[in-house]
Write a protein that binds this DNA or RNA. Sequence first.
DNA 1: GTCTATAAGGAGATAGAC
DNA 2: GTCTATCTCCTTATAGAC
Lengths: 220, 220
Amino acid sequence: MARMSATDRRSALLEAAFRVIAAEGVSAATTRAIVAEAGMSLASFHYAFTSRDEMMRELIRHVIENQAVAAFSSLRYGVDLRTAIRDGLQAFFAVVVADPAHEQTMFELMQYSLRTPELAQLPREQYSGYRNAVSGLLETAAADTGMSWLLPLDDVARMVVAMTDGITLAWLADGDAAAGSRVIEFAATSIAALAQPIDTPSPVIALQHPHVTDTAENAP
Amino acid sequence: MARMSATDRRSALLEAAFRVIAAEGVSAATTRAIVAEAGMSLASFHYAFTSRDEMMRELIRHVIENQAVAAFSSLRYGVDLRTAIRDGLQAFFAVVVADPAHEQTMFELMQYSLRTPELAQLPREQYSGYRNAVSGLLETAAADTGMSWLLPLDDVARMVVAMTDGITLAWLADGDAAAGSRVIEFAATSIAALAQPIDTPSPVIALQHPHVTDTAENAP
DNA sequence: GTCTATAAGGAGATAGAC
DNA sequence: GTCTATCTCCTTATAGAC
C-alpha cells in the first residue's frame, strides 16, 4: 500500500469500520474485516491505532460529533407550524428509509457505548446534541409562524426526539414506512398543539399537566 | 451437577443467558459465561443445545412471546381518558427505571435479530405483539371513559409504542427520569386528544392530517 | 448423563524482514 | 513505514472417561 499519513490512515480506517458495522453489525467489525474493507494489511491497523478499543472510542466520538441532523433543516417558510414540523419529520424519516443501515448503526454504537464503562457517558452528550439541534429548529419554526411554545423548549425537543427514535425503531423492526408516515402526521399535530399564537394576550394554558411524578434520576 | 431433565436444563440455561446479557451485553454472553452463571459445566451446554446459535434463537423467541406488558394493565377506573393513559405510561416507565438492564437487553436482542438473517422477521412479530397489547388497553380505556378513537386503533397504538420506545431510549442514554416523566405527561395529553366523547352526534374532526406521504415499504 | 480434557479456528496484537 | 508471519489467548464444539 502506498504511503499515507497516519491521520489519513486513521480516517480511512474509521470510515471502513463504519461501513463494515453498517453492513454486518458491530460483532462483525473485527480488525481483519476492517483492514480488508480499507484495503490495508493487518499491521497497518495497529500502526494507526494502539488497539481496537481505541479505534471504537474514536469512531463513536466521531459519529456523535458529526451527526447529520441536516434532514430537519429543510424548513419551508410561509406554512403553518404544524406543516413545518410535519415536513421536518417526514424529511428525517425519508433519510432513515433511504439508508436504514446508517440509523441501525447509530443505535448499535449507542448500545456499545452503554456497555463500555469509559464510553457510557457519550450517549448523554449525543442526546443532548439531538435536543439542541431540534430546539433550534423548533424555535425558528415557531418564530417564523408567529407562535410561541407553551412548554420549555427543551421538553418539546425531548418529545420530538422521542417520536423520531420511536418511529425509526418501529420501522427498523417491521419495515412499514407508510405506517411510520401516518404516525408522523399525528405526531406533528400533537407537537404543534404545544404552541399558541404569539399575539394572544392572555396565555391560554390548554394543556393538562397536573403534576410530574417524582422519579429520581438513575446514575448512568 | 445433579441430573436434570433436558427441558429443565434448557430453561436454566436460557435464564442464565438472559442474566448474563442483561449484566454485560450480548457480546459477553459466551457459552462459558452462561454455563458459569448457570453453575454447569461447558459440556452441559451442548448437551442441551446443539449450538450457541440455537440457544440464541430460542432465547429471542422466548422473550418475544413472554414480554411483560403487564405494567400497562394497572388501569384505574373512574378517571378521564388522559389520566388513564398517563397512569399506564408512568407505570410502564417506572418498570423501566426499576430494571433498566431488562429494557436494554430487549433492545440488544432486537438488534441481534435484525443482524441475523433467519431471525430478521422476529422484530416484526414483536412489534405487532406490542401494538396488539396496547390496542386492547386503549380500547378498554376509551370504552370505560365514554370516548371513541378518531383514528384507527392500530395507529394510535403505534404512536403509543413509538413514544414508549423513544422515552425509554432517551432515558437509557441520559438517565434523566424526571424529564421522561414530563414527556409522558405531555404525551398522554396528546394521545388522549385523539379521542372524542362517544355521545357527540356529529363527528368533530379536530385533527389535521391532510395527506399521508406515499412512502413504499422496504423489504425487511 | 455428566464430567474433564482437548481439538480446531478466529480474535487482537506484535516481531522482525524489507 | 509497510509488510508477512507468528504469538497468545479465547471462542465454540466434541471426544472419551466415568
